[in-house]
Computed example of a mutant assay.
Amino acid sequence: MQTFGYNPKWLHIHHDEKVFMMINIDQTTSLHLNNEVQFFCFELEPEGQIYATNVFKVREIIQYSESLSQTEGSNNGVMMGFMSVRGETIPLLDLRRWIFAAYDSPWSELREFSTPGEKIIVAVCDFSDFVVGVRIYGAKKIISRKWDEVTQATEQGIAHGKVTATVRYEDGRIVQIVDIERMLVDVFPHLESQKEDELKNIKSIKADKMVLLAEDSPSAMKMMQKILDQLGVVHHDFGNGKLLLDYLFSSPSVIEEVGVVITDLEMPEVSGFEVIKRMKADALAREIPIIVNSSMSGDSNKNMATKLNADGFVSKSNPREIEQALREYLS
Rank of each mutant, 00 (worst) to 15 (best):
R173V: 04
M83C: 09
I158V: 14
S128C: 13
T164W: 04
E72H: 13
Y137E: 11
G298N: 12
I322W: 06
Y6L: 04
S251G: 12
D299I: 15
T71F: 05
E196R: 14
E43C: 05
L284Q: 07
I13W: 03
E170P: 12
K222N: 12
I290D: 07
D26T: 10
Q49R: 06
W98R: 05
N201S: 14
V122N: 08
L231V: 02
F40H: 10
S108E: 14
H160T: 03
I202D: 06
L308Q: 03
T154N: 01
H190P: 01
E328R: 15
G5V: 05
Q49K: 06
G272I: 06
E66P: 08
I227P: 09
F82C: 00
E47D: 15
Y51A: 04
N301M: 05
A325G: 10
K203D: 14
E323D: 15
S331L: 13
C41Y: 09
S128W: 02
I61V: 15
M267V: 00
I121N: 03
S217R: 01
G232W: 07
F56C: 07
D94W: 05
Q176L: 08
Q49G: 04
E17R: 13
D197Q: 15
Q38P: 01
W98H: 13
L95D: 09
R111T: 15
Y169V: 02
T164D: 03
V19N: 10
D186G: 01
L93E: 00
K226I: 10
N24M: 15
L93C: 10
V85R: 09
D264Y: 09
L330P: 04
I99P: 04
E149A: 07
A220C: 13
F188Y: 12
S217D: 11
F100L: 04
L184R: 13
N318H: 13
S331D: 11
Q27M: 14
E196F: 13
F40W: 09
C41L: 08
A207K: 01
K200H: 13
Y137P: 08
L248P: 02
K209S: 05
L245N: 11
P46S: 03
S114N: 10
P8Y: 13
V258N: 08
R168H: 11
E269D: 12
E328P: 01
K140V: 11
I262Y: 00
V185P: 00
V122L: 03
A281F: 10
N240S: 01
H190E: 15
L244T: 03
R182M: 05
D299M: 15
D16L: 12
R320N: 14
S67V: 13
V185F: 14
Q225T: 13
H190S: 15
S219E: 07
R278W: 08
K209W: 09
V167Q: 01
W147C: 04
P218I: 07
V270S: 09
V167W: 07
T263W: 00
S30G: 14
Q2H: 15
M1V: 15
E257K: 14
G157C: 06
L212A: 06
S69C: 09
Y6T: 10
V260W: 02
S253G: 01
V254D: 03
G5C: 07
Q194N: 12
